[in-house]
Design a protein around this nucleic acid. Structure first.
Lengths: 197, 197
DNA sequence: GGCACTGATGTCAGTCACTGATATCAGCGA
DNA sequence: TCGCTGATATCAGTGACTGACATCAGTGCC
């Protein structure tokens, strides 16, 4: 006979998603979430630094995937190659089965500036980590930042397309498409035809 | 004999900067700021939506400058041209006399994730507004987003350089330099020599 | 002069995010 | 059996923010 139901953190996460979706983020108190799974508000805050973080914990694995992708690129790869490699590495996270979960999560975030702030902070953290990895590969300082930020931007735009209603292409395909658009845009020419993947 | 000292909002802003700098953001209460200029906490919240906003109000003028810059570009300009034009328009805001104020403000923000979140949200808002303007000029959807985000990234990197210790180049020069680096990076080649301004 | 009206402010009471301190108590190893 | 550990509960407190209502100088109108 166990003293506590196991997986408190996971149960809190699930309850938070449900409540944020049904009632809305602002009208859900931390105590609501905790009580929904038989815990107290205090325990909620032992598992999550704040009411937003419950939707964002687990970003470390995404960051690691980006870094692994940078590390996987061959010697002599350009900054753009390094970013492309990182984007490819990260695509494995976004399998077809996860699409609906990602959509629900994004609906919640889209409805609340406070949650958007947190998401932006996470993305900025991602970009900062990538920039460090690029510098370690010899990319000069501000180029590293630009490439890292661009990579995260491409990731974000691809993600937006991936969760769009009716979209069925793979995350990797979308990343390639968006990266192609970025390159074309930066070359100063308009996109005329299809962009090779 | 006036009933209230005029310029409550501006006085609150100044007091907030002072207190955030001296005591730190977290150890400054909204009531502290208000009382420092002879007002009550409630009045503080009538002027600013929250404790962070006191450092960020006035972004509308920056946004307008970006949009004016887009509008100022000639017909037939590429997305990259539009961004370059927007960046140029915005440079006038960052005159040499403002540099020290910007530095102080950034010291405060750099010390607090909560403030960084707000700054990121403002930047994202900027990018969104620019993207709308680009679409209105006929730029296709995701290219508009990519160009707008890239523009804001260049702006941010240039800003970081501009407030770096010892930096004396103009904001416009720095923007041009960074934009050049972005273009080179996206072209997939390393930067070898100087980038033309 | 009197009077209604406006707008910036004050007062007060309340909710909720978040924190620190301390207590509880099942399971586990010695 | 005993003491330790770790996840939890309890409780009291701070501070961000909100809504309702009062105040009262200035302004314009009769």
């Amino acid at each position: 006979m166990v003293r506590w139901e196991p997986g408190a953190q996971e149960r809190l996460r699930a309850a938070a998603m449900d409540l944020y979706l049904s009632r809305g983020y602002e009208r859900t108190t931390a105590a609501d979430i905790a009580h929904a799974v038989g815990l107290t508000e205090r325990t909620f805050f032992r598992h999550f630094a704040d009411k937003r973080e419950v939707l964002f914990s687990g970003q470390e694995v995404l960051e690691q995937a980006f870094l692994d992708g940078v590390a996987a690129a061959p010697q002599g790869a350009s900054p753009l190659d390094l970013i492309a490699s990182a984007l490819a590495a990260v695509a494995t996270f976004f399998s077809a089965e996860r699409r609906d979960h990602s959509r629900r999560r994004q609906i919640i975030i889209a409805a609340n500036p406070a949650l958007q702030e947190r998401e932006l902070l996470k993305m900025a953290g991602l970009a900062a980590a990538i920039a460090v990895a690029l510098r370690a590969r010899g990319v000069p300082d501000s180029t590293a930042v630009l490439a890292a930020e661009s990579g995260v931007t491409v990731f974000g735009v691809a993600f937006g397309k991936w969760i769009a209603a009716g979209e069925e292409r793979s995350f990797l395909d979308l990343e390639r498409e968006v990266l192609g658009e970025l390159v074309a845009m930066a070359a100063g020419r308009e996109l005329r035809g299809a962009v090779g993947g």
